[in-house]
């Protein structure tokens, strides 16, 4: 017998971004905190409605870039000055002008890797299983439809109330999200 897990939450579907953003505002002002919204493309207004402002990524990328610079310098300096000093064309051992291109590339490389893996890490990806995928119509979230899901972990969550609340917001469909 399969163990019965508690519901993940209740999900409402919208067919245009205007209602979607309005719904996020409504959910937020109704006092819900444990909810998420899904859209097939980035919508600035939706991020604002959810109260998302700056994030840690630029700072992380800056640190990544600085780390790349330091690593590049350390590599060039250690190999050319300390480990195997070699006079080439009378140039100084510590030829800092000649290091500039390599340092630049290392900075960019580390910063770019930080940007990509930092974004994936903060987003908790890859994560191939997520309860929202159990809703059949959620396949449209990557195409043309917008979804708001209030999760069962929210203290204000009550299956019937929340369902009714979401139904008042959307003209399309409200469904339960199996875990």
């Amino acid at each position: 017998m399969k163990p019965v897990l508690p519901l993940h939450g209740v999900m409402a579907e919208f067919d245009n971004p205007t209602e979607f953003v309005a719904a996020i505002h409504a959910v937020k002002s109704a006092g819900y905190e444990g909810f998420d919204a899904y859209s097939p493309m980035p919508i600035e207004e939706a991020a604002e409605a959810m109260g998302l402002h700056g994030n840690k990524l630029p700072l992380m990328v800056l640190c990544g870039g600085i780390a790349g610079f330091c690593c590049g310098y350390a590599l060039a300096y250690w190999t050319g000055v300390i480990n195997y000093p070699l006079n080439i064309g009378g140039r100084p051992l510590h030829s800092w002008p000649a290091y500039i291109p390599v340092l630049f590339e290392c900075t960019v490389l580390f910063a770019a890797l930080t940007a990509v893996f930092g974004m994936l890490g903060l987003n908790g990806l890859p994560k191939h299983y997520h309860p929202v995928f159990n809703v059949e119509r959620f396949a449209l979230a990557s195409r043309s439809r917008f979804f708001v899901c209030i999760e069962a972990t929210d203290p204000k969550f009550d299956l019937e109330d929340t369902k009714r609340f979401l139904q008042s917001l959307t003209t399309v469909e409200v469904s339960e999200v199996q875990p």
């Binding site: 899904y38 859209s39 990524l57 974004m119 994936l120 987003n123 990806l125 191939h128 997520h130």
Partner: peptide
Amino acid sequence: ALGWRGSVRHWHRYETA
């Protein structure tokens, strides 16, 4: 696709990245 689900929070960081 790494389990991309189009969460607004994800889009927010995605756009920054």
